[in-house]
Amino acid sequence: MTEASRQFDFEGRIARDEKIEPNDWMPSRYRRQLVRMISQHAHSEVVGMLPEGNWITRAPSLRRKISLLAKVQDEAGHGLYLYGAAETLGAEREDLINRLLGGDARYSSIFNYPSVTWGDVGVIGWLVDQAAMVNQTMLTKCSYGPYARAMIQICKEENFHKRQGMEIMAVLSAGTSAQRAMAQDALDRWWWPTLMMFGPPDEESPHSSELIGWKVKMKSNDELRQWFVDLAVPQAEALDLQIPDPELVRDSKTGHWISGPINWDEFRSILEGEGPCNRERIESRRESHFGGAWVREAARAYEEKCRKKKALERESL
């Protein structure tokens, strides 16, 4: 088959909603873009453990402690499933992680904000995980099989994360005045960064149209953002909390909630590494990864010894 006919065949498969599998032919750009996207997603899961992990040791009841630990643990699992999906494309987890630790790979901007109160734990579950779910629900239908399947597995687990966050928010909102203030303050700080999670507006999104064409992305950034806002506004109302957007209005024709302008300068400066926690997040990941290198070396050395021992035993037979 010529390159052109392969390309034609590939596009036909995408059009027919067939899944592309690891051994299938794919344009090298499709492969590269997928590795970039899946690994960014994996990095986000793992870095995303840090702001919430920060509160496991201070969770205010045993029930909350157990739930939060299980939730943050799930995020490690998500990272692992996604690195696995990227590895099916010929990338190696170690290289991908080294790129993150070297500052050459991105992860979701949201995790560069600090989590400074228990209210933040609630808001992260309620809004950040919900925003992630909006995005991930779409991705369960994406054209690359291993990515789509990882997304299905992740979405199943993600539901508990969101409910866990909602429960925290509901309890805080119905709690003492200090707890209510904690909940509102957390919403004030996390609302806009959550909207930015969906990425720059469509007209400035560099990869979007190509990715949508390949069905790697299923909806545009702005469409997903709108979907999320429509979900979150009535929830905030039910929680009796105020969304910090004075311009937020409901379009009476479409029924959509229309937000005020997003501060994209803030988003860009975070992507450039100037967010409040960029440095410490990467530093923390570096410490764990390089600090754990001796453990991985020891395990390999031990396996090597076992192999040699077995080989000797076989020889002596």
Binding site: G77, L80, Y81, G84, R93, R296, A299, R300, Y302, E303
Partner: peptide
């Protein structure tokens, strides 16, 4: 899915845990 491990027992345990 997949995982990384140095040997079979480590792999089996990690599979159980993950």
């Amino acid at each position: 899915g997949s995982l990384r491990a140095s040997g079979s027992e480590e792999a089996l345990q990690a599979a159980r845990d993950v």
